[in-house]
């Protein structure tokens, strides 16, 4: 190896950054080469001279040190507060999210329970040998039958020119309050219409028309004038929706 190549390694030697084997090789060469040894010595001397010349040439004033320390202490307080505020905000947000989740879950559970109760009543009617208490296809017979039995009234739609046929009705109890259950026939399907008082706490369904398909049945429900309407059937959702439209037109 030529001296030029050895001299490329002298900076690392002067900086004490050579690996063990490399260091041993360089020192072997320096013992044998006066010129490179002088070069290495010079680099070490310059390094030391620079350190001496540059070290502590500029000293900070005590006033600046004090000013900086004050700045750090001043900055720390907002950081404390900031962290505390951030933690508090995060905690409040977490609590709100938990509360919203609980409310949402509670509403969902209440809705599920309400739907299950109506579905049970529908299934019981379907299984009964006497599904209705007032048997008539005439709405002017069925509706008056409810007079005095319910704390509210409602209108039944005109079914002429429609595929639906009124079969009758009966009083049901939903959430301990009396309501009306009407039975309609469409082809070979039977659909029930429930009309109950809309108690938002007990029947927390969203506003507008909501459609569900619990256990393969079609359900459509809506609220109007303080009454909750629900149509349940084992036919397709379009049939349920069409009967719902007839009822919405009447009420």
């Amino acid at each position: 190896m030529t001296c030029d190549l050895w001299r490329d390694k002298l900076d690392a030697y002067a900086d004490d950054s050579c690996s063990g084997e490399e260091l041993a090789n360089i020192e072997d060469h320096l013992r044998a080469c006066t010129a490179c040894a002088a070069e290495a010595l010079a680099r070490i001397q310059v390094k030391r001279a620079i350190r001496a010349a540059a070290s502590a040439r500029f000293s900070p004033s005590p006033e600046f040190r004090l000013r900086l320390e004050k700045s750090i202490h001043k900055s720390r307080k907002p950081l404390w507060l900031s962290l505390w505020t951030q933690s508090l905000a995060a905690s409040v947000l977490a609590l709100l999210l938990i509360a919203a989740s609980v409310v949402s879950w509670t509403r969902h559970a209440a809705r599920e329970a309400a739907m299950a109760e109506l579905l049970d009543q529908y299934l019981a009617t379907m299984a009964s040998a006497n599904p209705v208490d007032v048997i008539s296809t005439d709405r002017h017979t069925v509706k008056p039958w409810f007079q005095g039995k319910l704390p509210f009234t409602f209108m039944l739609p005109e079914l002429n020119n429609s595929p639906y046929k009124l079969l009758g009705g009966k009083v049901v109890f939903f959430k301990h309050s009396p309501g009306a259950q009407l039975l309609y026939e469409l082809r070979n399907h039977r659909l029930s219409v429930f009309i109950v008082q809309d108690q938002s706490g007990e029947f927390p369904l969203q506003s507008g028309i909501a459609a569900f398909s619990p256990k393969g049945f079609s359900v459509e429900t809506w609220s109007r004038s303080g009454l909750r309407f629900a149509v349940i059937g084992d036919s397709n959702p379009a049939d349920v929706h069409a009967l719902g439209d007839l009822l919405r037109t009447s009420n």
């Binding site: 540059a54 070290s55 502590a56 040439r57 500029f58 000293s59 900070p60 600046f64 040190r65 900086l68 320390e69």
Partner: peptide, 13 residues
């Protein structure tokens, strides 16, 4: 803070 004086020196350079 132990680096303060040396940082200041370096910053001046």
């Amino acid at each position: 803070m132990p680096h303060f004086a040396r940082l200041f020196n370096f910053a001046c350079w």
